[in-house]
């Protein structure tokens, strides 16, 4: 199945990836090749088959709602590219 250049740009936007024009072209070919391999899935008649999201049956796990130590502010900020006053520093929102 072929994927269009416009679709590649749309998906890149959804994935928050700024691609060069050359990269868009490359991905258009690569993704089309891959989709050709996997598209037979979409044509299978699987009416009535239950989907599996998790292969080993488990039920929800609950625990007592008690206060426990978590990541300290110091550790949480340790890998921050930029920080200020104990917070993550980011540029302005919007253009």
């Amino acid at each position: 199945m072929a994927i269009s250049e416009e679709q590649v740009r749309h998906v890149a936007m959804l994935a928050r990836l700024k691609l060069t024009d050359a990269h868009v072209t490359t991905l258009q070919h690569e993704l089309s090749d891959i989709l050709t391999q996997i598209e037979l899935i979409s044509s299978l008649d699987l009416e009535g088959v239950e989907p599996t999201s998790h292969a080993v049956a488990i039920t929800n796990v609950a625990r007592e709602d008690e206060i426990r130590p978590g990541l300290s502010q110091h550790d949480a900020l340790r890998n921050a590219p930029e920080q200020q006053d104990g917070a993550f520093l980011i540029p302005k929102f919007g253009g």
Partner: peptide
Amino acid sequence: AEDVMDLYMRSRAEGFGPESIRRIMLGTY
């Protein structure tokens, strides 16, 4: 980065290698 969106878009595009970008694109699609 000019703003947060620009920061996301370019940090991810420059930070991830080609196969990661391929899989993220495939999965997002």
